[in-house]
């Protein structure tokens, strides 16, 4: 993966937990911006608890300058992202950061409500209202190419759609194995 990083990514103090609280807040903000930007530009959806994005790249480890963020500080950053709603658990069960067992999170560079709205917009513009649409069609189909949610992992799509369900705009349909496979949006 050839990824582009902002200049601050090569700034060594970024990798040391800053003792001053105000500076540390800024530092964590920078980290969050780096992660969310990187994820949205390259469509990276998952991050594990130790900061490995899409099972291949540890964002907190910079080999170019030979620096890495200490694990405890990684947890601190991830925890803040979790409470900000910028990370969401992979499992369906609602849980807090520490008790989450899935060990992997989805990166939400957009809040879940915005994803829901974007999907709703797709339904409206592509004339799919009041029709059954499969999850595959929504996420992988040719008709959603060019939309930001294209190639979004199916469970995350379901999470976004559940937001639409709570807004009474959507019904999810399960298959015979009790797995979500389709939806109908009005």
């Amino acid at each position: 993966m050839q990824l582009e990083y902002p200049p601050i990514y090569s700034f060594p103090p970024l990798y040391t937990r800053q003792p001053n609280k105000i500076i540390r807040t800024k530092q964590i903000e920078s980290w969050i911006t780096i992660i969310l930007d990187l994820a949205s530009k390259n469509k990276l959806w998952t991050i594990s608890k130790d900061g490995t994005i899409e099972n291949s790249l540890n964002i907190f480890q910079n080999n170019d300058i030979g620096r890495s963020v200490p694990p405890l500080f990684i947890v601190e950053i991830m925890k803040i992202m979790f409470t900000n709603g910028q990370l969401v658990s992979k499992s369906d069960k609602k849980s807090d950061f520490d008790s989450d067992l899935s060990n992997e999170f989805y990166i939400l560079w957009k809040p879940i409500e915005s994803w829901g709205s974007l999907i709703l917009e797709w339904f409206e513009t592509s004339n799919k209202m009041n029709q059954v649409v499969t999850l595959y069609e929504l996420g992988e189909g040719d008709e959603s190419i060019g939309w930001e949610f294209h190639e979004m992992p199916a469970p995350l799509l379901v999470k976004s759609l559940k937001n639409l369900v709570s807004r009474n705009r959507c019904t999810l349909i399960k298959d015979e194995n009790d797995k979500y496979i389709a939806m109908k949006v009005i």
């Binding site: 029709q131 059954v132 649409v133 499969t134 595959y136 069609e137 992988e140 496979i181 389709a182």
Partner: peptide, 13 residues
């Protein structure tokens, strides 16, 4: 329609 679309998805895959 869902069944139709599912088979469509299979072919697409």
């Amino acid at each position: 329609v869902l069944e139709l679309k599912r088979s469509k998805d299979e072919i697409h895959k």
